[in-house]
Computed example of a mutant assay.
Amino acid sequence: MKTKEFKEQLKEMSVEQMIDMENEYREELFNLRFQLATGQLENTARIQTVRKAIARVKTALRQAENN
């Protein structure tokens, strides 16, 4: 998903949905790190993508909190 599309999608979500999304990304990041440690990870760039997605969700949550 493109960054612009992702940001638009976040704007339309409720706070609860964003929290759920963040938790899903954190779980995925944990699994990716586990795969990296065991040598099973094929796409190492996915770790960085998931980390950025978590940061974007946290930013959107913070903005929603301030509004």
Rank of each mutant, 00 (worst) to 15 (best):
M1K: 07
K2P: 11
T3G: 07
T3H: 12
T3K: 10
K4M: 09
K4I: 11
K4E: 13
E5S: 14
E5Q: 11
E5I: 07
E5C: 07
F6C: 00
Q9T: 06
Q9V: 02
L10C: 09
L10M: 13
K11F: 04
K11H: 08
E12L: 11
E12T: 10
E12G: 03
M13H: 07
M13P: 05
M13F: 06
S14C: 08
V15F: 12
V15E: 11
V15M: 09
V15Y: 11
E16N: 11
E16T: 10
Q17E: 15
M18P: 00
M18T: 01
I19T: 11
I19H: 08
D20A: 12
D20E: 13
D20T: 06
D20L: 10
M21G: 02
M21V: 05
E22W: 06
E22H: 07
E22A: 07
E24L: 14
E24H: 10
R26Q: 14
E27R: 08
E27G: 06
E27Y: 04
E28K: 03
L29K: 00
L29F: 06
F30G: 03
F30E: 11
N31F: 12
N31P: 08
L32E: 04
R33K: 12
R33D: 02
R33Q: 06
F34Y: 15
Q35S: 09
L36D: 13
L36W: 14
A37Q: 15
A37F: 12
T38I: 09
T38L: 12
T38A: 11
G39W: 14
G39C: 08
Q40G: 14
Q40K: 15
L41I: 10
L41Y: 12
E42Q: 15
N43F: 09
N43P: 03
N43Q: 10
N43A: 09
T44S: 14
T44D: 15
T44G: 06
T44R: 15
T44V: 15
A45I: 13
A45S: 14
A45D: 15
R46E: 09
R46V: 11
I47A: 04
Q48V: 14
Q48A: 14
V50N: 00
V50H: 01
V50T: 07
V50W: 01
R51L: 09
R51D: 02
K52G: 08
K52F: 04
A53H: 04
I54W: 00
I54S: 03
R56G: 01
V57N: 01
V57K: 01
V57A: 04
K58S: 07
K58A: 02
K58D: 03
K58H: 02
K58F: 01
A60T: 02
A60E: 02
A60Q: 01
A60P: 00
A60Y: 00
L61E: 04
L61C: 03
L61N: 03
L61H: 06
L61D: 04
R62W: 04
R62D: 12
Q63G: 03
A64T: 01
E65D: 09
E65F: 00
E65I: 03
N67D: 10
N67I: 09
